[in-house]
Amino acid sequence: MSARTVELFVNGRRVQAPVEGAEFLAEFLRERLGLAGTKVGCGIGACGLCTVWMDGQVVSSCLVPAVVAAGRHVWTVEGLTDLAEGRVTDAPPGLPSPQLVQAVQRAFVQCEGLQCGICTPGQVWAVCALLSEEPRPSEERVREFLAGNLCRCTGYQGILRAVRQASEEWAPSEDP
């Protein structure tokens, strides 16, 4: 099988690896780069497990062939955690702020925003992206933005509580 070498930027680092056939970004991250924090669920962009940040937006990495990702800037949950834990020195503009990531991760743990955890990296990315764009979203807005990030365990209640807590911590309301 003919392989091609693909070069892109993952979590701020330039990476290069061979890809074969219909290899998608999700599998490329997991199997070629060993970044297994990005999970793979439905394979059709419907579940949100493979959510990553690519060139400024959250996308489903199961829908992006690795060859299409060439040259792009991709951030996974590992990079998000590096950001939160102060290991990223020159974060490009547009990424969520480290304090926001910390607030979101903490809120998911404290509010039972997770159970089995397989959807959690994608949920955390989605919430960071939402709160970056809109620090105090309405409940309706949260539901619309997170509608494509499925969770079978929590019934979403813990996730919604986590979003509220993180939002409140990140962008406190004016009210006393």
């Binding site: 962009g45 419907a46 949100g48 959510t51 996308v59 489903s60 829908l63 619309e144 494509g148």
Partner: peptide, 12 residues
Amino acid sequence: AGRVGNVRVRSL
């Protein structure tokens, strides 16, 4: 346009 799929799909 805002009702197609989900936010990740609409971003692509």
